[in-house]
């Protein structure tokens, strides 16, 4: 999770990213490491006459590269909550798809859902509709986010 928090009344923005333990350059290195040696093996056997190893290595490398490509598609997923004047905007990027939900901070409230297994989920509720937020966060981070949002929206309520 990375959070960019401009803590002023005029604008507030916080961005969350899903947990991904491998960097972009790390992915490239891993794929290279995983492909170079099987390729060398296949080429070696081809030179000895056992060329049928080669297509299987090719297929496998294709599957491996596609798996990492698929994982990588979600590397840029994010969730952003921003408050600017009368607008509370929740943006969510999943794969190539971006969804935006706009709420009025005067009417929105933070709702907490405590699950029996100890999990906490947060939602922003306005006009009977609820948007889940902070899906990439740990419980501790969710508690902190709930506090921040309540504090921020409390200011609207008082005004």
């Amino acid at each position: 999770m990375t959070a960019v928090d401009a803590d002023s009344y005029a604008s507030y923005s916080v961005t969350f990213k899903p947990n991904c333990s491998l960097t972009q350059s790390g992915k490239t290195r891993v794929v290279l490491l995983l492909t170079v040696i099987p390729c060398c093996i296949a080429i070696g056997f081809s030179l000895l006459g056992a060329w049928m190893v080669l297509p299987f290595v090719g297929l496998e490398i294709f599957a491996l590269a596609y798996a990492f490509y698929y994982v990588n598609r979600h590397a840029n997923d994010f969730e952003r909550i921003s408050i600017e004047g009368d607008h509370l905007l929740v943006e969510r990027c999943t794969g190539q798809h971006v969804s935006q939900y706009q709420l009025n901070p005067y009417w929105a409230s933070v709702v907490r859902h405590e699950h029996p297994n100890g999990e906490l989920r947060l939602g922003l509720l306005a006009h009977g509709k609820e948007i889940e937020v902070g899906r990439y966060l740990t419980r501790k981070q969710l508690e902190s986010l709930a506090e921040q949002l309540q504090k921020r929206m409390g200011k609207y309520f008082r005004n």
């Binding site: 099987p38 056997f45 056992a50 049928m52 190893v53 299987f56 496998e60």
Partner: peptide, 25 residues
Amino acid sequence: LIAAMPVLAGALTMLITDRHFGTHF
């Protein structure tokens, strides 16, 4: 597994082509 399995697949396929498709690996 990633490095070794295609080698087995290649060996087995050559075995099959030797059996049924007239190759002589």
